[in-house]
Amino acid sequence: MKKLLNTLYITRQESYLHKDRETIVIKNGDQKLGQFPSLTIGNILCFGQISVSPFLMGYCGEQGIGLAFYTEYGRFLARVQGKQTGNVLLRRAQYRWADDENRSVSIARLMVAAKIANGRSVLMRELRNHGDNPMLTQAADKLANSLRRVKHAKTVAEAMGMEGDAAATYFSIFNELIRENGFVFGGRVRRPPTDPVNALLSFVYSLITQECASALQGVGLDPYVGYLHQDRPGRLSLALDLLEEFRAPWADRFVLTLINRRQIQLKDFVHEASGAVRLSDDARKALLVAYQERKQVEVMHPYLQEQVPIGLLPHCQAMLLARHIRGDTEFYTPYIVK
């Protein structure tokens, strides 16, 4: 199994990163903030006004260290990519499958089904832990019906439509899962997020998308060519496909934990004149620490039947997808929590 490496989150504005022998050095002006062996680093995520030396960029590309840039809001901007790894025959097969509606929908159905099933599991967990709630029960029943319907989707567009309906049902009662006073979720708002809950969701989704992109590239797949999300210049379509499996069990539950345990509070958000809402610098650092700790938690992978750190789940699913596209397995097995 692949080893879970560390991720560097650079949030201090006007920091500068460069390479010194086999280490990565972080400086702010004349002050050295840290120095880390490059062999222990899997990803470097830079938020805001962060500079990286051209030589370190090249080194990250050569060594397969993910290097991505975000705004202070956590909106993804760009990532540095080195030479493509993996068998070119795998990528050629991936592209052919993406052009084949039947093959595309066979994978899209499974990813949408996993998203719906995992969202329903979050609701059922809430019902088990906190007793009967008619709104949650009704939503769970609707999601069960959506899950049955998606198995019969004939096209990717049809699968996407069912995914949209299921997401609307799920988010319509998401506010019922929030137990901390003051946090109110009235619906999903993306660009830009206009309330604290949406700000948290968007930020964490963006982080996990990059985890998925790195995992796909690591097994030799092209993260920009997907089966559920359509091709668009600059869009990590396959990474977004993979993200669907992790939204509810990883991202949403993590956000709910931060709110309900008061690890993140209303005072931790900045409201911009434009109406956008973002995390304060200190709160973003606290979230990233908690996120890194969460990645270390081990769970039983339902298909591989072994304990896997949460941070390696994207790699596991990327590996299973690559096996399916190569023809080693008859079906792709999405990640579904028990």
Rank of each mutant, 00 (worst) to 15 (best):
G29V: 00
A322S: 05
G42T: 07
V289P: 11
T71W: 05
L89Q: 14
P249H: 07
D141A: 15
G48Q: 01
S15Q: 00
D222P: 15
S104F: 07
P302I: 00
R188K: 03
E180I: 00
N87M: 05
L201V: 06
D281W: 09
A98W: 14
D165G: 14
Q13A: 02
V277W: 05
S38M: 13
Y70N: 05
K3M: 04
F331M: 03
R12S: 02
Y224A: 08
V308N: 02
N102A: 07
V255L: 06
A318D: 07
G327W: 07
E163W: 12
A93P: 12
Q81Y: 05
D195H: 01
Q49M: 00
E163S: 10
D241Y: 15
L304H: 06
A140F: 11
F69T: 07
L5C: 02
Y291W: 14
M162A: 02
E176F: 13
A139R: 15
Y303I: 03
E244Y: 15
A168G: 12
L242Q: 13
K115A: 02
F203H: 10
M1Y: 01
Q63C: 03
C212L: 06
P134I: 03
K32L: 08
P334C: 02
P302E: 03
G42N: 08
T71G: 12
D20G: 10
K27A: 09
Q217A: 15
N175C: 03
Q307A: 08
S38D: 13
W97N: 09
R96F: 07
S280G: 15
S38K: 13
A273T: 06
L207D: 03
L258P: 00
A93R: 15
E298S: 10
H271C: 01
E158F: 13
E245T: 10
A159F: 09
R179E: 02
T11N: 05
E211T: 10
L8W: 06
R190H: 13
E62M: 04
Y291M: 01
R128A: 06
Q13P: 01
W250Y: 10
N198K: 01
Y59P: 04
Q265P: 04
A78P: 12
L17C: 04
G66I: 13
I259P: 04
